[in-house]
Simulated assay, not measured.
Amino acid sequence: MQDISNMNREGLPSSKSLFKATGVAAVIGSVVLVTTILPAEYGIDPTGLGQTMGLTVLSQANAAESAQPESESASSGNLLALPAGPVWKTPEGLSSDSTTVTLGPNEGLEVKATMAEGDRMVFNWTTEGGPVNFDMHGERFNDGDNFTSYWRGRDQPSASGAFEAPFDGTHGWYWENRGEVAVTVVLNTSGFYNDIIKK
């Protein structure tokens, strides 16, 4: 067995420098613990730096996730990261309508749905007899002749899509037949609105 008492200690740190390095490491570790780990993991932020750096949000997310039932957390995967969630909820009942209008040559007509801000619907319309020009737009209640146009088209035989009302009012379509024969427009809507109005 080698006797280490007679080994050359040249180049090795002294006991004093080892204690000093250990102390510095402990101070740095304590600073990291107080300023980052505690705010991020547990929401404890005695210095206020965690909130400034946005770390306390992490502890809130962890708390919200742990509050979810285990089955819900496991089955929903990354959907928990969505702040509003994937489901849009409403107390209103679902409406579904099929509306038919006939436009003579050079005639136009509006069909609108009364909707509250945030209400949603899906729609599909097709024509029989020829294409039409259209303007999908909305009008606020009691706002005179002002309107907001969402989608315009020329010589179109059909259109489909989904719509979310940006404000309370009436929202829908103005169709115009620029042809020489009558055109029938069949509109199918389904969603959350109060009624369908022909103008």
Rank of each mutant, 00 (worst) to 15 (best):
F134S: 09
S96A: 14
R120E: 09
L109W: 03
E110Y: 01
N124R: 11
P131T: 07
T127Q: 07
V111I: 07
A116G: 12
P105W: 09
G118A: 01
V111L: 03
T127F: 08
E110G: 07
T100D: 12
L103Q: 04
M115P: 13
E110P: 02
T127G: 10
G130I: 02
T100F: 01
D97A: 09
T114E: 02
P105A: 15
L103A: 01
D97V: 13
S96E: 15
K112Y: 02
E107N: 15
T127C: 00
E110V: 04
G129W: 05
E128T: 15
T114N: 10
G104R: 08
T102E: 15
L103V: 09
G130F: 00
N133H: 08
V132E: 04
M136C: 08
N106E: 14
N106W: 11
N106H: 13
E117K: 09
D119C: 07
F134N: 03
S96M: 09
S98M: 13
W125C: 02
D119H: 10
V101Q: 03
E117A: 14
T100N: 13
D97R: 11
P131C: 07
S95I: 06
G104W: 13
D97Y: 12
L109P: 02
H137W: 00
G129M: 05
E128C: 03
T102G: 08
A113D: 00
V101K: 05
S96L: 06
V111C: 03
G104L: 11
N133D: 15
D97Q: 10
R120W: 10
V132K: 06
N133P: 06
G118F: 09
T102L: 03
D135F: 00
V132P: 07
D97T: 13
H137T: 04
L103H: 01
P131A: 13
S95H: 05
T126Q: 08
V122L: 10
M121G: 00
G129T: 03
P131H: 11
P131M: 13
M136I: 15
S95F: 00
S95C: 04
T100W: 07
V132F: 06
N124M: 05
G108L: 02
L109F: 06
F134I: 11
H137I: 08
P131N: 12
A116W: 08
K112L: 12
T102W: 00
G104K: 12
E110M: 01
D119L: 00
